[in-house]
Write a protein that binds this DNA or RNA. Structure first.
Length: 405
RNA sequence: GCGUCGGUCGGAUAGCGGCUAUUCCAGGAGACUGUAAAUCUCCCGCCCAUUGGGCAUCAGUGGUUCGAGUCCACUCCGGCGCA
C-alpha cells in the first residue's frame, strides 16, 4: 500500500524542534511550515478559488459536519469530490467534525472558544452539571455524538466510522480522526474520560480508514490522528504516546486552550510525536502563536481568524492589528500596510476599505480576507525561509518587536 | 379662515394614565484562534464617580390627576381636505 502523502524535512532549527519541510500530495506540494486556509463549507468565505490562490495559499481545509449536512457527502462524491466540486485544484484537507462536538456541545451558548483567557480560577471548575444551560446541539454518547443540525433541527449521529466514511466521500487529500475537543473548564476526571474516548475513537477511525482503503485497492487519503489531553501534562503526554504510536500519516494537536497553556502543551506533545511525520496545530493562527508553533516543531496550522477578522474589518499589519472601520481611517489615503505585498495593499487605501465596511459592501469582506490571508500565509512562508536561511530567531524578534509594540 | 391628522434622543419609529420611553438605522468602540459568524457585544440627553450616583427629557404654556409623552385648554409648527 503506497503512502498517500510524502513528508520530508529540509532543514531543522538549532536546538529547537522547529523544521522546514515539504509534503507531497496527489494534488500538489505543501511547503511546511504552512498555513492552511479554512473553507468550511467548500468555500473560503468571500473568496473565489482564484482569489484564494492569489493569497499564496497552497491548501484548503473543509469540514465534515457542515458538508455532510449540506450539500451531503454522497452528493459531493457524485460531483467528483471536493476539489472538483469547488474548483480548487490544490491539496485539500477535511476536519472530522470533532471540533463541532465542542463548539456545538460544551461551548454552545457560552463564552468559551478555541483560545480562552482565564481570569477567574472558578471558571476552571466544571460547568457540566449546572442547570439552566442552553440546550446543547451536540451530545456525546458511548459510541459517537448526536448532533442537532443548527439549521433545520434534524438529529444526526456521527461515529468515528461515520466521520471517516463522510471524509472518504468528500475526497480530500488529508483527513482527520474523529475526536472530542474538550473545554479547559472541565475537571481532570472529565478530561481523562474524554481522552480515553478520543483514543478509542482514534483507533476506530484508523481501522475503518484502513478497511476502506483496502476495499478501494490501496488508494485513499492520508489520515491524521489527533492528540488531546487539555492542559494536563500527564494527559497530553499519554495522548502523544498513544496517538503517536498508531500508524497515522500525520498528527493533529487539538484542544481549546487557555492562552498560557498552549505553548507547554505543544512542547510536551512534539517531544513525543514521531519526527518523520507532519504535525498540524489545529485552529491556531495568530502571529505570536504561529511563531510559537513553528519554533516548537509544528508543520501545519489552520485558523478562521484571518478570514473571520477580514470580514469584520480587523486587519493585520506589520505594526499590529487595526480595525479599519474606525473613524481614524476615514480619510487615511495611505495603504493598509506599506510593508505588505498583497494586491489590496498595492491598490486600495485605508479610506476606501473603511468606506466599504461602513457601507456594508461585500467587497470589504473580500478585500479584507485577501489581505489577511496573504499576510498570515506570507508570514509563515517567511518563517520557513528564515529556518532555511538559519535566521529564524532574528526574524521572529524583528517581526514581533514591531507587531506587538 | 374652517375642518382634520400629526409634532418622541442625528433620522425613522413604538408607547395611548403607572414608576428604567421601545426598536431599527446612522454614530463611537470592542471582541473574534480545527467558522451556529458578510457575525456578535457594549456605548450613544447632561454632570460627577471606582462599583455607582445625581439631574434632565417626548414642540411650548397652563390645567386635570396620587401619578401625564399619553387626558383637557390655548399657543406655535407641519401635512391633508374644504372654502
Amino acid at each position: 500500500m503506497s503512502k498517500p502523502i510524502k513528508f520530508s524535512i529540509k532543514k531543522e532549527l538549532d536546538g529547537k524542534p522547529g523544521r522546514a519541510g515539504v509534503i507531497e500530495t496527489p494534488h500538489g506540494t505543501i511547503h511546511t511550515p504552512a498555513f492552511v486556509s479554512v473553507g468550511t463549507k467548500a468555500s473560503v468565505k468571500a473568496l473565489t478559488p482564484e482569489q484564494i490562490l492569489e493569497t499564496g495559499a497552497e491548501v484548503v481545509l473543509a469540514n465534515t459536519y457542515h458538508l455532510y449536512l449540506e450539500p451531503g457527502d454522497e452528493r459531493v462524491k457524485k460531483f467528483g469530490g471536493l476539489q472538483k466540486f469547488m474548483n480548487w485544484h490544490g491539496p485539500t484537507m477535511t476536519d472530522s467534525g470533532g471540533f463541532q462536538v465542542f463548539s456545538l456541545g460544551a461551548a454552545y451558548g457560552k463564552e468559551i472558544s478555541k483560545v480562552v483567557s482565564i481570569t477567574d480560577p472558578s471558571q476552571l471548575l466544571s460547568e457540566r452539571s449546572l442547570d439552566g444551560e442552553e440546550p446543547r446541539l451536540a451530545k456525546i454518547g458511548q459510541d459517537g455524538v448526536s448532533f442537532r443540525s443548527h439549521h433545520d433541527g434534524t438529529l444526526h449521529y456521527i461515529t468515528p466510522e461515520k466521520s471517516i466514511d463522510i471524509q472518504h466521500n468528500l475526497g480530500a487529500d488529508v483527513i482527520f480522526a474523529f475526536d472530542e475537543c474538550t473545554s479547559p473548564t472541565e475537571s481532570y476526571q472529565y478530561q481523562e474520560e474524554a481522552l480515553e474516548r478520543t483514543h478509542r475513537w482514534a483507533k476506530r477511525s484508523l481501522d475503518h480508514h484502513n478497511s476502506l482503503i483496502r476495499a478501494n485497492g490501496g488508494i485513499g487519503p492520508a489520515l491524521f490522528g489527533i492528540v488531546q489531553g487539555g492542559r494536563e501534562e500527564a494527559l497530553r503526554k499519554r495522548s502523544a504516546e498513544f496517538i503517536g504510536g498508531l500508524d497515522f500519516d500525520g498528527f493533529g494537536i487539538g484542544g481549546s486552550f487557555a492562552k498560557e497553556d498552549m505553548e507547554t502543551a505543544v512542547k510536551w506533545v512534539n517531544e513525543i510525536l514521531p519526527k518523520d511525520k507532519p504535525r498540524h496545530l489545529l485552529g491556531i493562527g495568530e502571529p505570536e502563536d504561529l511563531f510559537m508553533g513553528v519554533e516548537n516543531g509544528v508543520d501545519l496550522f489552520d485558523c478562521v481568524a484571518p478570514t473571520r477578522n477580514g470580514r469584520g474589518g480587523t486587519l493585520y499589519t506589520s505594526s499590529g492589528k487595526i480595525n479599519v472601520r474606525n473613524a481614524e481611517y476615514r480619510e487615511d489615503t495611505g495603504p493598509l500596510d506599506p510593508e505588505c505585498g498583497c494586491s489590496v495593499c498595492k491598490n486600495y487605501s485605508r479610506a476606501y476599505l473603511c468606506h466599504l465596511y461602513r457601507a456594508h459592501e461585500m467587497l470589504g469582506g473580500t478585500l479584507g480576507s485577501i489581505h489577511n490571508l496573504y499576510f498570515i500565509i506570507n508570514l509563515v512562508k517567511q518563517m520557513r525561509q528564515a529556518i532555511l536561511d538559519g535566521n529564524f530567531q532574528e526574524f521572529k524578534t524583528k517581526f514581533l518587536s514591531k507587531y506587538s509594540k
